[in-house]
Design a binder for these strands. Structure first.
Lengths: 313, 313
DNA sequence: CATCAGTGCGGGCAATTATTCATTTGAGGA
DNA sequence: TCCTCAAATGAATAATTGCCCGCACTGATG
């Protein structure tokens, strides 16, 4: 029986008394005939030696494991994983809920912020969960245009919904989500009334965006921003996803296509310094999310358990 | 999603961050957007709700579980269970080791003690593990006679071995372990020189004893204290074990037999107030140990894992 | 509309645990 | 035998956690 063994035995014994027995180090010391300090050392050695295994017996636990791993794998600043619920819809609600919470937390900060907000059903749901807040110190800007091709207000532009909840100066982009041509886009964005918006968009402190798939019933198609022909062409060029209208391939690189020159959204830099948080879930969006992560278009993610697991797998 | 659910979720989340993430409550508070106190409450709720499971990944852990259960089951003051080792002999050594440690701990106490010591191979091994100690303040008395039937010193009387290690007044019983008759026993114990011993034996602060089986190669037979005929008779009366020579049945009651009136040992009361600690292990001794526990002849036990498990099973 | 029990919150303090540091101890080597 | 060095020890101190208490808010009730 080597001395190291007896040492480990004692460490395990002390740890048992401390964690399982729920005793104070003083008590353990008197039982084991040691000083309190020695007991402290033993317990800490047991912990350091990996003898003490703790786990949290709750579904959340696995989510947090996934979040931690995603953070490490993709160098994320922020990551939240919500538990898988019965239905896909319920899970989506949970993602929205979590996103709402996170937005609320940022809006609750005392220092003035410029918050950029994208589009999408998930974000819209998130904003629905917001309470009414007085945030006059912050500025909230839309990262996308808010005009549909038919001239109506874009359905899933979230800024207006947000303005109903949050008392803060808001800055929409009164231009088409996707202009008819690159030239028109340039002209529209040159409007004087958009100068402030442009300045603010370059200095966002935090951005919340959605991620859209390109294949199938892509939001861009459903909402009439691009045609099925556009979609087919983009898919042919390897497009897998889009964020605030910018279409990217599986590597997270923007596709070289007409669409990306006509999008009126704020610039979408890779590896932004400020948090750019995507809220997205669902089987169909996985390639898009993975691409956005790989291309470092986002550095924060709120998603569901299954998606998180898939992204790590 | 009920409020209790979100509460538990948050509790689990906080507990995860605290235990798995290894974060301080302050950090968790800032991450979750709560006060430190709230985090403390959440963590404590998670613990109270049984969400936090801790285990010690070391063989000792199971031993301590068994010791705890034995204590509860038999109302023991002291219980120690040592891990099962490769061989039975090694396990015996471990039991002796543990017993030695415990004796040492008692001898290290500053207040004067009267320590009673029994016999047996296990105890002998325990004393072998003792370091040299200066214990002039204590008194150590033998609980059994030290004379073999052939007039020699009884082999496994532990007192003399102990005296070599420990500087303390020792009080042997210079009488046969088992006298020829009840009358002889009375006469011998009436010797004036034994008066001090007798007084001390009534006021022991702590006793260490062995437990012997009666069937098979019982120590009493091996050492020549009783004959095979005695053994057969005792077995016929339901004897299962002995402590310092007193023979008892499966219920821990002393057998009504000649032998128990001829034993010169100190009295062996049931339910003693002072700790009476038995060191015993091995498959063959189990019925004896169980009986001693049931009859409350002992209130402390040092044994091995397998024996402990069997006693609980 | 006032009242009131119930609940949760955060401040402040007490208890507990972790860390640092000077000193001692003990093993091994000259 | 003495010396050296590393490990271990316990006192002092810092950091962290746990707990009590008053206060504010909420929702039910008269």
């Amino acid at each position: 029986m080597s001395s190291r063994d007896t040492k480990l035995d004692d460490a395990a014994r002390a740890a048992w008394l401390a964690y399982i027995g729920g005793m104070k180090q003083d008590e353990i010391a008197s039982i084991m005939g040691l000083s309190r300090q020695s007991v402290q050392r033993l317990v800490s050695q047991a912990v350091a030696g990996g003898l003490v295994k703790t786990r949290i017996d709750h579904p959340i636990s696995q989510c947090m494991d996934l979040a931690r791993d995603l953070k490490a794998r993709y160098g994320l600043q922020i990551c939240e994983v919500v538990p898988q619920l019965a239905s896909d819809a319920a899970t989506g609600t949970a993602v929205s809920h979590a996103t709402g919470h996170l937005i609320e937390r940022w809006l609750s900060k005392p220092d003035p912020l410029i918050l950029g907000i994208g589009t999408g059903r998930t974000l819209r749901g998130a904003v629905d969960h917001l309470p009414h807040l007085d945030c006059a110190r912050h500025k909230i800007i839309s990262l996308t245009g808010n005009i549909s091709p038919d001239g109506s207000t874009a359905l899933y532009n979230v800024l207006f919904t947000m303005a109903e909840k949050v008392t803060a100066p808001t800055f929409p982009m009164p231009v088409p989500v996707i202009s008819a041509s690159a030239g028109e886009r340039t002209a529209l964005l040159g409007q004087k009334t958009l100068a402030t918006h442009h300045d603010l968009s370059l200095h966002t402190d935090i951005r919340f965006v959605g991620i859209g798939a390109i294949e199938g019933d892509a939001p861009l198609v459903l909402d009439g921003f691009i045609t099925r022909e556009d979609q087919a062409r983009l898919l042919g060029k390897g497009a897998v996803g889009e964020i605030i209208g910018y279409v990217f391939d599986a590597g997270g690189q923007l596709i070289d296509d007409d669409i990306n020159t006509r999008v009126s959204s704020a610039p979408l830099p890779a590896s932004p310094v400020y948090p750019t948080i995507a809220a997205a879930h669902g089987h169909r969006k996985r390639p898009a999310i993975r691409a956005a992560l790989d291309g470092k278009l986002i550095n924060g993610l709120i998603t569901d358990e299954a998606t998180a697991a898939a992204l790590l797998g």
